[in-house]
């Protein structure tokens, strides 16, 4: 098997995540989709690392994980505070920015 298959898998997961962001309305699920996209790119990075035979890709994936963790913390805090004020976790309900 060619390790490129991992890349195909990553592409597939990324696409599913991206579509999820567009389709789902629940903010939490939306966040999960973002996480899935990040994971997909991590997989790609790890695969690249293997293709090139150095560890830089893995380092990048590692940083991605750290940033994702930070992002999740802040994002979930935002979701919670939005839910508190608007009693809804649907992103469609937060549409005050429209004209």
């Amino acid at each position: 098997m060619n390790p490129v298959n991992y890349l195909y898998l990553a592409a597939l997961l990324f696409t599913i995540g991206a579509s999820g962001v567009l389709i789902r309305r629940n903010a939490i699920v939306l966040f999960m989709c973002v996480e899935l996209m990040l994971n997909a790119s991590n997989l790609a990075l790890v695969t690249f690392s293997r293709l090139h035979g150095n560890l830089d890709g893995q380092i990048l994936a590692f940083f991605t994980m750290v940033v994702a963790a930070a992002e999740v913390v802040v994002g979930l805090a935002i979701i919670v505070s939005i839910f508190r004020t608007r009693h809804s976790a649907s992103v469609d309900d937060s549409n005050l920015m429209k004209l």
């Binding site: 962001v21 567009l22 309305r25 992103v91 469609d92 549409n95 920015m97 429209k98």
Partner: peptide
């Protein structure tokens, strides 16, 4: 053009995508 600004995050995400 203003109609593009729906205020829905998902619409914006769609246009980004």
């Amino acid at each position: 053009l203003r109609r593009i600004q729906t205020g829905y995050v998902r619409t914006y995400a769609l246009s980004m995508f």
